[in-house]
Simulated scan of single mutants.
Amino acid sequence: MRQFPLGFREVEELMLERGVLVSHGTVRRWCARFGQICASGLRRRWPRPGDNWHPDEVFVEIDGELKYLWRAVDADDAVLDLLVQNRRDKAAARRFLRRLLRTTLTVPRVIVTDKPRSCRAAHREVMSSVERRSYKGLNNRAENSHRPTRQRERAMKGFRSAGETQRFLAAFNGTSPHFRPRRHLMTAPGHHAETTIRFVIRNQITASGRPAKA
């Protein structure tokens, strides 16, 4: 089975196999509309986030300009939130941490960050009561979470705008983990059964998100 969300070219090829001709722009609009519906529905089914958070930032090139993608995951590798920003200074770190608190509606027990001073300063202002840990290698979990984004970035040959990148990654990070169970921990029949269940859940969510027929 193919994973969701697909690239535009992959969707066009699937439709062409079924004798349906669609334009690149039509596929783009489908992904923008239904991708977020699927991501929002899956997020509502997620369990409560863990109390150990790993925020991190990585640079991305958007239309020839250097931007920073801030992302946070918990101890189970679930993506809590992400935000595309122009900088990686104290103000950017503070904005992202405040956004995390609003999105998750919870406060972590421990926050694991890198060593930049901007992270320390933002932590003191926004989460002063939360334990902060920082030393080499401790935040590898957050750094590894950037890999799917890098893979999709290469497949799409880069991002075109900050707003488009934010919208796409919000949908992509909300759906991609759902279709990527930890296969190395499963038998082949178990993986097939789990994948089938997850596609059924996806179909239920997308069906409930469609507008009613007149």
Score class of each variant (00 low, 15 high):
L21R: 12
V84Y: 06
R94D: 15
K67P: 00
V73C: 10
G41E: 03
W53M: 02
A72D: 02
R98G: 15
S128F: 09
L97H: 06
S118T: 13
E57V: 15
G64K: 01
V27K: 08
Q36S: 15
F8E: 04
S129N: 14
S118D: 12
N52G: 01
D81M: 05
D74W: 05
V107S: 13
Q36V: 15
T26W: 09
R88W: 01
T113K: 00
R88P: 02
R102M: 04
D63V: 02
D89M: 02
R120P: 01
V11K: 00
Y68V: 03
H54F: 08
F34D: 14
C31D: 14
P55K: 01
T103G: 01
L97R: 08
P55Y: 03
E17D: 09
E131M: 06
V73P: 04
F96D: 08
A122G: 06
L97S: 07
A32T: 05
G19Y: 02
P49C: 00
N86F: 06
S134G: 10
P5T: 00
P47G: 06
Y68I: 02
T104G: 03
R94W: 09
R29P: 04
E13S: 05
L100R: 03
I62E: 05
W46E: 15
L42H: 07
V130W: 11
R45C: 12
N52R: 14
R102Q: 14
V84R: 03
E65Y: 00
K90M: 13
G50F: 04
V112A: 04
L82S: 06
L105F: 13
A121Q: 15
K90C: 11
S134L: 13
S129G: 13
G64D: 01
A121T: 14
S40C: 10
C38I: 10
A91F: 12
D76I: 05
C119R: 07
R88G: 03
S40V: 11
G19H: 01
K115N: 10
R9N: 02
F96K: 04
L16C: 03
A93F: 07
E57I: 12
R124D: 13
A78M: 11
L69V: 10
R117K: 14
I37D: 13
V130A: 11
R94F: 12
G7D: 01
K115S: 12
N86K: 13
W30M: 05
K67E: 09
S129H: 15
R29T: 06
H123M: 14
R120A: 15
L80E: 04
G64N: 05
E125K: 15
Q85I: 03
E57L: 10
V27Q: 11
E65N: 03
E125R: 13
D114R: 00
A92I: 07
L66C: 15
P49T: 04
T113Q: 01
E65F: 00
R43S: 11
V20Y: 01
